[in-house]
């Protein structure tokens, strides 16, 4: 058998087929105890095949990837359910093979066949795979692999929309606060990607889901006791609100006195980093030309305190934009 493989170089299609065969074998025989030696052999073969796929897609030290080979590989890969099998059986693979598989899946999301992204089409008709990937955050062993795959999949606008509109979106508020730093941060990165990558889709999502989303965002992330959660959330809030495509959402956000109160509390946070990020959102409240009375009230009541605070508020490094913004805010507040 082995001699056979060596004598004739396998085509990309062969490698995909054999990978698939290995996965099918795993699928049928994993529970059974009997054929352990055989299974080991198949596992080793699978690892080798996945590595081979990776080297076709990425090239190896000596050679760059060949477009034609990548196209063939991609076509064959999505012709059948290889992606499904790979995702489902990922937890059974060893660490190195999981990493290879993750890189293969990541790369496939970008491959085009006759100027179409095949992966996107496949995922659109197999959306349950995304559910599996998201739930991966609940399993420490595979969270980082599934997380990386997921972030690649949401590069496709239609897939990002699916995830945004799914029930899973609420789960991210838990995942972000998992005690394990690696996994929480991974979930956080995915969350951020979902809420910043596809501008129009995000604007639509935020508009349609404004109430529950910002309720959760304020109460669970911005008011979290976890330093990292808070710091990442306030940064993300700034990124979202300052994006031109979210202008309407921003106007709504800065017209609420409850939101203002949360932001003012973050300005007094013990962390300088959080203070600075909070300022970038706070300035929007002050700059709003149509401030509701309740917002004006709070700003006026706290005017002297705010001015005193801003007088001593500085960034570590010199930052002209920050200073200019601060001047503007001081002017606005003084003029109220």
């Amino acid at each position: 058998m082995k001699g056979l493989f060596k004598s004739k170089p396998r085509t990309p299609v062969d490698v995909v087929r054999q990978t698939r065969e290995n996965l099918v074998y795993l699928d049928l025989n994993f529970g059974s105890r009997g054929g352990d030696a055989k299974r080991e052999e198949k596992m080793a073969e699978l690892s080798k095949n996945i590595r081979e796929l990776k080297s076709i897609l990425y090239g190896n030290g000596e050679s760059e990837p060949v477009t034609e080979a990548c196209v063939q590989l991609t076509q064959e890969f999505f012709r059948e359910n290889t992606l499904r099998l790979l995702i489902i059986h990922l937890p059974k693979l060893n660490l190195e093979t999981r990493k290879d598989a993750t890189q293969v899946v990541a790369n496939l999301q970008r491959q085009q066949v006759s100027s179409k992204i095949v992966a996107s089409e496949y995922l659109e008709s197999n959306k349950d795979l995304l559910d599996i990937l998201i739930l991966g955050y609940e399993n420490m062993d595979i969270a980082l692999h599934y997380g990386a795959m997921l972030r690649e999949c949401i590069r496709h606008q239609s897939i990002a929309r699916y995830v945004l509109e799914s029930e899973h979106m609420k789960k991210f508020f838990d995942y972000i606060q998992l005690p394990n730093f690696d996994i929480a941060s991974d979930a956080s990165a995915t969350f951020k990607e979902l809420l910043t990558r596809h501008k129009a889709t995000v604007a639509e999502f935020l508009t349609n889901n404004y109430d529950w989303f910002f309720e959760e965002f304020n109460s669970r992330l911005l008011s979290s006791t976890n330093y990292i959660t808070k710091r990442q959330a306030i940064k993300l809030l700034g990124d979202m609100l300052l994006d031109r495509s979210n202008a309407a959402v921003m106007m709504r956000y800065v017209s609420s006195k409850d939101n203002l109160m949360i932001l003012m509390n973050l300005l007094r946070d013990s962390s300088k980093n959080i203070q600075i990020e909070a300022f970038h959102v706070f300035k929007l409240f002050a700059a709003n030309k149509n401030k509701p009375a309740e917002v004006v009230n709070i700003l006026v009541t706290n005017r002297s305190k705010l001015l005193r605070f801003f007088a001593g508020f500085k960034t570590d490094k010199e930052d002209e934009q920050f200073e200019a913004d601060k001047e503007q805010v001081i002017k606005e507040i003084s003029a109220l």
């Binding site: 980082l144 941060s185 330093y227 990292i228 962390s271 300088k272």
Partner: peptide, 16 residues
Amino acid sequence: LERSRANLDDVWREAK
């Protein structure tokens, strides 16, 4: 994390 100037994303990437 407060003192280090690196942003959290970098810290995470490397920890991962």
